[in-house]
Design a protein around this nucleic acid. Sequence first.
DNA 1: TTGAATTAAACAAACGTTTAATTAATTTTT
DNA 2: AAAAATTAATTAAACGTTTGTTTAATTCAA
Lengths: 219, 219
Amino acid sequence: MYFTLYMSIDKKEHIMEVAVALFAEKGYEGTSIRDLAHEADVNIAMINYYFGSKEKLFVALLENKARFMRERIDAVQSDPSLNELEKINQIIDGYVDRFLSQPAFHRVLQQELLVSNRELLHQNVIALFTKNTQDVVSIIEKGVRKKIFRKVDSQLLFASIIGTINQVMLSRSMCNILLKNEPGTNPYQDPALKKRITQHIKQMVQDHLLIHPALQKQK
Amino acid sequence: MYFTLYMSIDKKEHIMEVAVALFAEKGYEGTSIRDLAHEADVNIAMINYYFGSKEKLFVALLENKARFMRERIDAVQSDPSLNELEKINQIIDGYVDRFLSQPAFHRVLQQELLVSNRELLHQNVIALFTKNTQDVVSIIEKGVRKKIFRKVDSQLLFASIIGTINQVMLSRSMCNILLKNEPGTNPYQDPALKKRITQHIKQMVQDHLLIHPALQKQK
DNA sequence: TTGAATTAAACAAACGTTTAATTAATTTTT
DNA sequence: AAAAATTAATTAAACGTTTGTTTAATTCAA
């Protein structure tokens, strides 16, 4: 339950904030309008009044959050001052930063990828990922053509980068077990985790990509 | 809808087969007993008659399928004829094989990790992964101590291995986009995919782990 | 004839959504 | 600037479905 302070600022956005938290925890089907209304401290009818329906609330939520996801890769990709490895490294930074700073929203996206019940939403979420995938893969392949990189499976390497982060984000308690944290703690609030993940992924990707890693590392 | 042929063989198992397929597609909350009964071509009351409740059906389903997941890693871990890299490679084979051969069940597990609504089920699924995690991590760390491997982040490397497979398994249509397949096809039925995934992961892990990869690869 | 398997029907509870009435805010008219 | 008219926001209650589950009757097998 939140304070009424929030409502006076922007009620619609307040509802969306509560919704993303609840959807992340209980899933879309597992969250009822009544739960949501109670948690956001608004009348049940207000959700349909503002958004039209539960599903439209979900779509509004996606569109609201998804905008922030694109920018950085676009900027990195078209930067001529970066070589391919530097681009990949910056993209890794970007993904880790994005995913870890919005764990609830990330969880909602993953759920929607995993469940293909609501076909329209499913396709919406997939469209979000498609362009990013193509961009990153083409950067790797350019590096391969330039003989900076070894001949690798660029598509699956992208899967490894994203998949590593997703694996850590999959479940709070599984993450704690993996990292041998105290059970019950929120691992995503630990600032050291972000650094640790980026370092691991960058090192692994570099080892995999570079033809002479020992030489490159000295620079 | 299935033929009644199945029912005469083992009705209970038939229901579980249909259930895992439906849960995988629509999620646990998104699948109703009526859907399930209709799809399995049994009376609605039969599901509670056999399993007691929807949630107990879910647990029965987990317990039934989960047994198969442990064996191989146990066998590999205690095999003295294998060095650490060979053990890791065999474990990669094992995971890819398991995950890709049972995509529906895998999907159900992932959903339950992602949603912490039903706390008991959630903890059950996490327990499944815990021992495997510890085993694999300790194999990597043994290799590091023996100076066969570089000093790596063993826990996150395990996350990368599992995460790569999970990423491919996340969504059929996203997998098709990633691999540039024809949309609508079932990528997990392609036997070449399994080989491709294992090759990529093994190569990436090896590049990351081995101190002198060029030397090692010649043997 | 006894017990298990199967059925259609009904159960209460919860679901997303809508309604109709009321209050609050804004705009228009005087 | 005050009063009136209009629109927007908010509410409690009810809507019709669907949910998981149970009942009581019936069929089937041993």
